[in-house]
């Protein structure tokens, strides 16, 4: 994700990552991937649940997905990965940001 963060910013957007990891885990992840964008801890899974992003097979974690939220706070685009342990394809985000 860090690789395309610059490209996302160039489209006038910001990137935020959320998982159910604890703050300590999030800190390790942030350092490991050298993230310049906020990587946030939703250990209580309130936000994951509010976005209907709970993994149906493991309710303790989020199912990988992107939401693009416009300046008015409206979801304009969404992509959910159907593969169980899949990695999201970041190029899709850039395509969508350009298209919207």
């Amino acid at each position: 994700m860090q690789k395309i963060y610059g490209a996302i910013q160039a489209e006038g957007a910001e990137l935020i990552a959320i998982s159910s990891d604890t703050q300590a885990q999030v800190k390790r992840t942030t350092e490991r991937i050298k993230a310049d964008f906020p990587v946030l801890s939703d250990a209580e899974r309130k936000t994951i649940s509010a976005y209907n992003a709970t993994d149906a097979f493991n309710r303790n974690i989020a199912r990988p997905q992107y939401h693009i939220i416009d300046e008015n706070g409206i979801v304009q685009w969404k992509f959910v990965d159907v593969r169980l342990a899949g990695r999201l394809d970041p190029a899709k985000i850039l395509e969508a940001l350009k298209a919207l």
Partner: peptide, 25 residues
């Protein structure tokens, strides 16, 4: 975030679009 700094979606509304990524952790 990992350092305890709080981030809200509201901070971005009216300013910028946000790509929100949920990952498995």
């Amino acid at each position: 975030d990992g350092d305890g700094q709080l981030y809200s979606l509201a901070d971005y509304i009216g300013q910028k679009r946000v790509v929100l990524v949920f990952y498995r952790g």
